[in-house]
């Protein structure tokens, strides 16, 4: 399976990954061989087969199902007392009350 340089760059963009030139080359070749191996799945006829996303919870989403209900906790607000501790662990936080995460400016106001 041939993975082009453009394919690698497109996927890296989607994944928010900055890659070095060497990585672009290596991952291109490796993804190609791994995906070629994955083509093996096409030996199987899966027409009419339902996809399986999760082994146990599949049938448990019905609101009328008592097992499902047992699995959904009540929509009750809880005290998130550790929120300050969480935010202060960030690489850059604004130590206000309440504290904030700091990030580079997202919206340019054209000032």
């Amino acid at each position: 399976m041939n993975i082009t340089r453009d394919d690698v760059l497109r996927v890296a963009e989607l994944a928010n990954l900055e890659l070095t030139e060497a990585e672009i080359e290596t991952y291109g070749a490796q993804l190609g061989s791994i995906l070629a191996y994955c083509e093996k799945l096409n030996e199987l006829d899966t027409s009419g087969v339902e996809p399986l996303a999760q082994v146990l919870a599949a049938e448990r989403l019905e609101e009328t199902d008592p097992v499902a209900q047992q699995h959904l906790r009540g929509d009750v607000p809880r005290d998130a007392a550790i929120i300050g501790q969480v935010i202060r662990r960030a690489p850059e936080a604004l130590d206000a009350e309440p504290p904030y995460f700091r990030v580079p400016r997202v919206i340019d106001r054209g000032e």
């Binding site: 996927v11 990954l17 993804l31 994955c38 199987l44 399986l52």
Partner: peptide
């Protein structure tokens, strides 16, 4: 980790989702 993020992102990306991710989930059923 980068290799797996790349592979997973590729498998989920537009145009490849059915061929890879959905196919794999069907094989998971089998």
């Amino acid at each position: 980790v980068k290799r797996r993020i790349m592979l997973g992102t590729y498998a989920l990306s537009a145009g490849y989702y059915d061929a890879y991710y959905l196919k794999a989930q069907k094989v998971r059923t089998l």
